[in-house]
Amino acid sequence: MSPVPAPTSDRLGDYLAADAVVDHEHPLIRAWVDARRADGDDPVERAKTAYLFVRDEVEHVMDAQDSRVTWRASDVLRERVGICHAKAHLLAALLRAQGIPAGFCYQKFSVLHGLNAVYLHGRWSRLDARGNRTGARGEFSLDEEKLAWPVDAARGERDLPEIHPAPAPVVVDFLMTTRPGAGWYEKGLPTAL
Results as ranks from 00 to 15, higher is better:
149 W>M: 08
90 L>T: 07
32 W>T: 00
154 A>N: 11
39 D>F: 03
148 A>L: 02
65 Q>I: 03
23 D>F: 07
105 C>P: 10
69 V>M: 11
116 N>T: 11
132 N>R: 15
29 I>C: 04
102 A>L: 12
139 E>N: 14
79 E>I: 06
80 R>W: 04
77 L>V: 11
59 E>I: 13
92 A>C: 13
52 L>N: 14
106 Y>M: 12
59 E>H: 15
72 R>C: 02
99 G>C: 07
83 I>E: 08
75 D>S: 08
39 D>V: 03
144 E>V: 13
130 R>Q: 15
25 E>Q: 10
26 H>A: 12
72 R>E: 05
144 E>K: 12
146 K>I: 04
42 D>R: 09
121 H>F: 00
154 A>Q: 15
143 D>A: 13
67 S>W: 10
46 R>I: 02
109 F>K: 14
112 L>T: 06
112 L>Q: 07
43 P>S: 03
57 E>Y: 09
117 A>G: 14
137 R>G: 11
25 E>C: 08
36 R>E: 00
111 V>Y: 08
45 E>H: 03
128 D>P: 03
95 L>R: 00
60 H>D: 14
57 E>K: 15
74 S>N: 09
43 P>H: 03
75 D>A: 15
103 G>T: 07
123 R>L: 07
92 A>F: 01
36 R>P: 01
66 D>Y: 05
122 G>K: 12
44 V>T: 14
140 F>T: 07
91 L>C: 08
146 K>W: 04
107 Q>C: 14
49 T>P: 01
62 M>C: 12
142 L>Q: 02
65 Q>R: 11
157 E>F: 14
67 S>P: 09
127 L>S: 09
119 Y>R: 12
120 L>N: 00
142 L>W: 00
135 G>P: 03
112 L>D: 06
46 R>N: 04
109 F>T: 13
147 L>T: 06
76 V>I: 10
143 D>K: 06
34 D>C: 05
119 Y>W: 09
60 H>G: 08
23 D>V: 03
140 F>W: 05
80 R>Y: 03
67 S>V: 13
71 W>M: 11
139 E>F: 13
67 S>A: 15
46 R>C: 01
81 V>W: 01
127 L>I: 12
36 R>G: 02
68 R>N: 11
44 V>M: 02
120 L>F: 04
139 E>I: 04
25 E>A: 12
43 P>K: 02
99 G>T: 06
85 H>G: 12
158 R>D: 10
68 R>M: 11
103 G>E: 08
116 N>E: 10
82 G>E: 08
51 Y>V: 02
117 A>T: 06
41 D>R: 14
28 L>A: 11
70 T>C: 09
125 S>F: 01
159 D>K: 14
120 L>K: 00
102 A>R: 03
134 T>W: 05
124 W>S: 02
159 D>I: 14
119 Y>A: 06
62 M>K: 00
123 R>H: 14
57 E>M: 09
104 F>N: 10
40 G>E: 06
105 C>D: 11
149 W>V: 07
71 W>Q: 05
82 G>D: 05
49 T>I: 11
26 H>D: 13
34 D>K: 03
143 D>E: 14
109 F>S: 13
